[in-house]
């Protein structure tokens, strides 16, 4: 392990030297494009720098740490309009008034970090889906639209899927449809409460503290509860999303839905 670490450290220094001539080091001008884009070595060494300099706050997996507001950097390029240049500037200048400091790294190292973040960033579909997007749209409206939004239409219980083909792989989406309880995202943890008046309310936890819980119900209504007034508060492990097995949606159905999701990009 130590040899590997030393090798990475050495690589970092050698690569910085290698890339030096390619970059305008004495200029405050920041180019729009990453000059190291596509170079796998840059992402690899950027990962080494990330683990040494960034992981304490952003997590070793770059997925962020909620308790200190350190964001999930694997999502950093999913915001429309976010660019390599933006990320470069944020690393270099920090975020004033926050825990995120400026970093006086050489430009090459910052570009390597950008390359690394690109490499761990969530990625979308890997290939062109050979399906029928029109039929997929029909199936989506029949099975998914009650809870999921597409282009401003649909429900709000589940994630907005308008850009999902850009940030999740085909397999990840199929797994979510076939077995939605296998991985439940932080913002979709299921809960069930029984109120003083014996009314059952099931939904996903939007927020919670020691005294209260804020829930988006499966009826897509926001409700807040004082815990002291509840007869029952059950943290469930089964997602509020319906499980779609082969008989509900077959393989062709899924392909068509994926095709529709991809056609939306």
């Amino acid at each position: 392990m130590k040899d590997l670490i030393n090798t990475l450290g050495l690589c970092s220094r050698i690569l910085v030297l290698f890339f030096l001539p390619l970059l305008g080091f004495h200029s405050s001008f920041v180019q729009e494009l990453n000059p190291l884009e596509g170079d796998p070595r840059a992402a690899r060494v950027g990962g080494s720098i990330f683990r040494a300099q960034c992981a304490t706050c952003h997590g070793a997996d770059a997925m962020g740490i909620d308790s200190i507001d350190a964001p999930d950097l694997t999502q950093i390029f999913t915001t429309p309009g976010s660019s390599d240049q933006d990320v470069f500037q944020t690393i270099r200048e920090g975020i004033p008034g926050s825990i995120m400091p400026p970093h006086a790294f050489p430009e090459a190292e910052i570009w390597m970090l950008v390359s690394y973040l690109r490499s761990v960033g969530v990625s979308g579909f890997t290939g062109q889906i050979q399906g029928d997007p029109d039929r997929g749209m029909f199936l989506f409206s029949e099975n998914c639209e009650t809870c999921h939004r597409m282009n401003g239409q649909g429900g709000s219980l589940g994630p907005n899927l308008s850009m999902i083909a850009a940030v999740r792989s085909e397999d990840a989406i199929i797994n979510s449809i076939r077995d939605p309880s296998a991985i439940i995202g932080r913002q979709y943890k299921p809960v069930s409460v029984l109120t003083e008046g014996n009314v059952r309310f099931r939904g996903i936890i939007k927020s919670e503290d020691a005294f209260s819980i804020q829930v988006l119900g499966t009826n897509q209504v926001l409700r807040g509860f004082r815990k002291s007034t509840l007869r029952e508060l059950v943290y469930e492990d089964q997602s509020v999303m319906t499980t779609f097995n082969e008989s509900a949606l077959n393989g062709r159905d899924l392909t068509d839905i994926l095709s529709y999701l991809q056609s939306n990009l």
Binding site: I5, G9, R13, R51, A52, Q53, T56, G59, A104
Partner: peptide
């Protein structure tokens, strides 16, 4: 905790490794 040899640069933090936190 996974230690890693840090670069010694004045003015830059020197944690020397990575931490995986089960959030």
């Amino acid at each position: 905790y996974v230690p890693e040899e840090p670069a010694d640069t004045p003015g830059q933090s020197n944690f020397g490794g990575t931490v995986f936190i089960d959030s």
